[in-house]
Design a protein around this nucleic acid. Structure first.
Length: 780
DNA sequence: TTAGGGTTTG
């Protein structure tokens, strides 16, 4: 039979291809070669309608892509089919099918120059003895030649995530572990990034593109379940990656156990049978106990400053602000407990129902969206239901305001899935929100401006709870002393009128503090020269790494008595050389989590990835006779999330081989202080530096907090890279100095402070520093 | 082509 549908059983074709046939690579399809016993296999990326030639012969043309060479510049070839075979093929061949062709005639392709395909085309007909094997719609897998498909009811095979192979096109199911809602890419399409997991516990990150927003999966939250058809698998950075291929289609399901199984899709036609329903149910059950899905989303009434969260809300108004930002006025029926900012816009620029905007003025919040989100935000329809992902609440003081307010930002970029999704009215969360919005009594909301949301949202069950909480804050101290309990309190006025240096115990309120942006309070301190410096940002490090990558690794320095080396060249145009030197212990390599390695020529991302797996990473470069550290503006050591820096002024870097002394220790601990010492580096320490304005009714003084860890019980070294700790610290500051409160309502702090003199030629000043004080346990 | 998950600092 010249046109044959193949069927696969247990991974093997039921009807094997004739054994004399051998697979031919696309690049070997050249004139002058003998193709008699060869076959070519490809995937249908284009097919034209069946037509008749002038002489009445049927003619059918398809384009096959060679998956084995899909990354080559030329990876597809035209197949011209004539006569009865054309008619037969037109009936069965579909986009995305895998097709095997044999017995073809090869001829120069007159259209190669314009279509960019192979320089030859293949001509086929029954008369010429050609044979076509169609691995029917759908393609199940492409493994060698053993392919595929039922000729009647299509039955799809789904590949578990731990069985994915490079260069294949597969169907799969997965539970959404992470996703970026579709956003406008820098190219021509929308992009959505989705990370899936399945019971094989393997993760797959898929990058999906489509010019039509509707054709991307309709994922609304982590835990949703997706079914992808015809997704292409590629290897990227040593891991499997999914990417949209021709014919990609998806279904998305709510991942909640017991919820109705209703696929979300833009396809008008899709198969969905009992068996697949069972798969969804099984995945839901698996996900319920194996995937951490966060609880109910935050409401406006529950926001805290300095949080990132997903807000489900309704759009009430929108307005242009400037080129890089756009305003959305939204509400969710609850009231934010803090004063919220109002972004000034021209009344004529504000779209939305004027009456409703006025009625809801105390319940709507202004969300400023930036950069890449502006285009999508502009297109949103007033009244639509949105989920704004990874919205950021920021506490700020306007210049002319005494009390701080909360700002809502959707920053630029798509990190952590930051973006905006429109939810359909059928979404269960929207149904619930709609019902709630309808129940909100607008007359009430206008009278509750001064009311705390704690009373509104039930965080506190009754008035007694609320009162006791307020009392706790107002009477007890939110800080405690770690020493000198026998000292008596001294009034601030007395302290201000006394000479320095002295030590005092005080009871005061924190009226304000600086910096308000907490990330700005982390500095690097050199205990030798007592200097303070800013923490360099990632760009500086990237720049230094790029500069060092210009020097190629010196092979003479590889594989010494105390480290083993590996070197390779990147496949991209830059042909960058990377060398990694794994430090040995007792002439043996250690477990990755105990290993210190040195890297030459790595990028920021590569270095960052290595820190996830190995204990210590030291970026180095080659000289003629040893490896050396990079410029000290870059971290000389990375451990976990922490970058360790050396003082430029006080360090005298020693040769890298000095490290071998630690490697020779019985149990090398690779402590940063020890590494710094043998490398001649004066280690800079991360510190919190803040200025507290304290008041007690008799006076006000500014006291400095200089703290490595003790006050907040959070290591200063970890705060810049740990979002959880940042939130914890912000909440601590909110307790010590609650935004929007009057002085009377601020809590008391008990502190030790010491006064000291600072004199220079021009003036003499007394400064105060907090010491031996820590935040109370029930505040942290 | 686009992006290739890992928060801005407005």
């Amino acid at each position: 039979m010249p046109v044959q549908l193949l069927k696969i059983i247990k991974g093997k074709s039921e009807t094997p291809l004739p054994s004399h046939l051998q697979k031919e690579d696309l690049k070997h399809l050249q004139e002058g070669f003998d193709h008699t016993n060869k076959y070519f296999q490809g995937i249908v990326i284009l097919s034209y309608p069946l037509t008749k030639l002038r002489d009445g012969t049927d003619f059918f043309k398809v384009v096959l892509q060679d998956l084995d060479n899909s990354c080559s510049r030329i990876n597809s070839i035209n197949i011209l089919i004539y006569g009865k075979m054309a008619e037969d093929c037109a009936k069965v061949i579909r986009h995305g099918d895998t097709v095997v062709v044999a017995g073809f005639k090869l001829a120069k392709s007159p259209t190669a120059r314009e279509d960019g395909r192979h320089g030859c085309h293949l001509e086929m007909s029954e008369e010429a003895g050609s044979a076509i094997y169609v691995c029917g719609y759908p393609t199940l897998s492409v493994i060698g030649v053993n392919i595929i498909f039922p000729s009647v009811a299509p039955k799809y095979v789904y590949t578990p995530l731990n069985c994915l192979k490079d260069g294949t096109i597969v169907n799969l199911y997965g539970v959404v572990k992470f996703f970026k809602p579709p956003y406008v890419s820098k190219g021509t399409d929308y992009c959505s990034v989705v990370t899936l997991v399945d019971p094989s516990n393997v993760k797959l990150t898929c990058t999906l593109f489509n010019g039509n927003l509707d054709s991307l999966p309709k994922i609304y939250k982590v835990g949703d379940i997706v079914r992808f058809h015809r997704i292409k698998i590629r290897e990227y950075n040593g891991q499997m990656q999914g990417i949209t291929s021709v014919g990609f289609a998806s279904l998305t399901f709510d991942g909640t156990v017991g919820a109705p199984i209703v696929p979300r899709t833009s396809s008008k036609v899709y198969t969905f049978m009992d068996e697949e329903q069972k798969t969804i149910e099984e995945l839901r059950v698996w996900a319920a106990s194996n995937l951490s899905i966060s609880g109910p989303a935050a409401k406006l009434s529950g926001v805290q400053p300095m949080l990132f969260f997903d807000l489900t809300c309704q759009l009430v108004g929108k307005a242009k602000v400037d080129g890089s930002s756009f305003l959305l006025k939204v509400w969710d029926g609850t009231k934010c407990p803090y004063p919220t900012w109002k972004v000034p816009v021209e009344a004529r620029d504000l779209e939305g129902e004027k009456v409703l905007l006025h009625q809801l003025r105390n319940l709507t919040v202004d969300v400023l969206v930036y950069d890449n989100h502006v285009q999508l935000a502009k297109s949103l329809k007033i009244g639509s239901f949105l989920r704004i992902y990874s919205i950021h609440t920021k506490q700020a003081n306007a210049d002319n305001e005494d009390v701080s307010h909360i700002e809502f930002h959707l920053h630029g970029g798509t990190c952590y899935g930051r973006g905006i999704g429109v939810l359909p009215e059928s979404n269960p969360d929207v149904k619930e929100l709609k019902a709630f919005l309808e129940s909100v009594d607008l007359a009430d909301s206008q009278n509750i401006e001064s009311m705390s949301s704690m009373e509104l949202d039930g965080t506190f069950n009754n008035v007694t709870d609320l009162e006791s909480h307020l009392q706790r804050c107002q009477q007890l101290s939110v800080t405690v002393l770690t020493d000198h309990q026998d000292l008596n309190n001294t009034e601030l006025k007395t302290i201000l009128n006394s000479t320095a240096p002295q030590q005092y115990r005080i009871r005061a309120k924190l009226r304000t503090y600086k910096p308000q942006k907490l990330y700005q309070c982390i500095k690097l301190h050199c205990s030798k020269c007592n200097s303070l410096q800013e923490v360099p940002d990632g760009d500086d490090f990237d720049f230094i790494l790029q500069g060092s990558a210009v020097t190629a690794p010196n092979p003479e320095l590889h594989n010494t008595s105390w480290y083993d080396s590996a070197m390779w060249t990147t496949q991209d145009q830059k042909q960058r050389k990377i060398a990694i030197h794994f430090v040995k212990h007792d002439e043996m390599l250690q477990q990755p989590e105990d290993t210190l390695l040195m890297i030459e020529g790595g990028t920021l991302k590569e270095v960052w990835k290595l820190t996830k797996r190995f204990k210590c990473v030291i970026p180095v470069r080659s000289t003629e006779d040893d490896l050396e550290l990079l410029d000290l503006s870059a971290p000389f050591l990375l451990q976990g999330n922490i970058k360790y820096y050396g003082c430029k002024q006080c360090s005298t870097p020693k040769p890298i081989k000095s490290l071998s002394s630690i490697a020779a220790e019985q149990r090398p601990s690779w402590e940063p202080t020890e590494i710094a010492q043998v490398l001649g580096i004066e280690l800079l320490q991360y510190v919190f530096i803040m200025k507290f304005t304290l008041v007690d009714g008799t006076g006000a003084l500014n006291a400095y907090l200089f703290d490595y860890e003790k006050f907040f019980q959070i290591p200063a070294s970890e705060i810049l890279t740990n979002n959880f700790l940042q939130q914890k610290m912000q909440m601590t500051m909110n307790t010590l100095c609650p935004p929007g409160r009057k002085l009377d309502d601020l809590p008391w702090l008990e502190c030790f402070i010491k006064s000291y003199n600072v004199r220079d030629a021009m003036k003499h000043q007394v400064y105060y520093q907090i010491f031996d004080t820590t935040v109370a346990e029930d505040v942290v």
